[in-house]
Simulated assay, not measured.
Amino acid sequence: MRISGANIIVTGGGSGIGRALARAFARHGAASVVVADRDESAAMAVADEINGRACQVDVGSPVSMARLIEMAEQDGPVDLFCSNAGITVRGGVDIFEQEWLRIWQVNVMAHVECAKRLLPGMLERGSGYFLNVASAAGLLSQFDAPYAVTKHAAVAFAEWLSITYGDQGIGVSCLCPGGVDTPLFRAESAARQDAMGEGLLSPDQVAQVAIDGVLEDRFLILPHKAVREQMVRRAQDTDRWVRGMRKFFSSVYDKE
């Protein structure tokens, strides 16, 4: 994927990893970057900084997503869609169905919606790229069920996109970071921050790794070495890995 001269959308671009990605795309010569966020003022601040455009968007709303894509296409076809926006919900099977549905819409269906709207044009042109931001939780089932389950689904959808359309000119990368110093991370309990704090990266560090991965057309982008190591352990002996995760999570929950 060539970033220079590309028309790019970044959701959740008003803060954290999204903001860092929008800045990085601009530094690498993107022709246009649309910064989308539910916080309009935050999106506008980033857009002003990088000479991009801002759009207030609820990624969980298909109507809002359609408006975003229509706006971005005023600059020409969308070359790269970075689906970064995400939310979290604390808890497990006790979570109300409405909360499950909301996090599913934001963390999964937003990825599906952008692909549904952009794939026809990309396939016709024979080019296009999706950078889907998931999480280490989508590979390692960390902490809260709604977040882990939806991030697993986000990884699976990115895999399906790549498998299904990778030979038709469609590039797909799935970014799965571990601990990153973002507002989402700082909202966690002290015990969870301690548990995830080893190897904590800044959003700018993650964005640079992501840019490198996109330029190399890599599917799975893992900024944290520890996440890759955990994936290997899981594959080698899943039962042992699950037992180890039980102990690890119990130790964290005991401190909350």
Rank of each mutant, 00 (worst) to 15 (best):
Thr150Cys: 11
Val206Lys: 00
Asp239Lys: 14
Ala156Gln: 06
Pro203Ala: 06
Val133Ser: 02
Ser141Pro: 00
Ala148Phe: 10
Ala190Asn: 12
Gly76Tyr: 02
Gly126Met: 03
Ser202Arg: 12
Val149Phe: 08
Phe219Val: 01
Ser83Lys: 01
Arg192Ile: 12
Ala226Cys: 08
Gln193Lys: 13
Ile9Lys: 02
Gly52Gln: 13
Gly171Arg: 00
Ala156His: 06
Asn84Arg: 01
Asp75His: 15
Leu140Tyr: 10
Tyr253Trp: 14
Ile9Ala: 04
Val34Thr: 12
Pro146Leu: 03
Met231Arg: 08
Gly12Glu: 00
Tyr165Arg: 04
Phe249Ile: 10
Val108Cys: 10
Gly138Gln: 03
Ala156Ile: 07
Ala187Thr: 10
Ala235Asp: 11
Ile95Lys: 09
Gly138Tyr: 01
Arg38Tyr: 12
Ser32Cys: 13
Leu80Gln: 01
Met65Lys: 08
Gly5Ser: 05
Ala145Gly: 03
Ser41Thr: 14
Lys151Thr: 07
Gly29Gln: 04
Ala66Phe: 05
Arg67Tyr: 05
Ala134Ile: 09
Val242Lys: 12
Ile69Ala: 05
Tyr165His: 05
Leu184Arg: 11
Phe185Gly: 00
Ile95Asn: 05
Lys151Met: 05
Gly14Ser: 02
Val172Ser: 03
Phe81Ser: 05
Ala148Thr: 09
Asn7Leu: 08
Gly14Asp: 01
Ile211Cys: 07
Gly12Tyr: 02
Gly121Leu: 09
Gly12Trp: 01
Pro177Ile: 06
Ser202Val: 05
Ser41Ala: 15
Glu229Arg: 15
Phe96His: 14
Leu21Thr: 08
Gly12Ala: 08
Phe143His: 11
Asp204Thr: 12
Phe248Ile: 07
Gln230Asp: 15
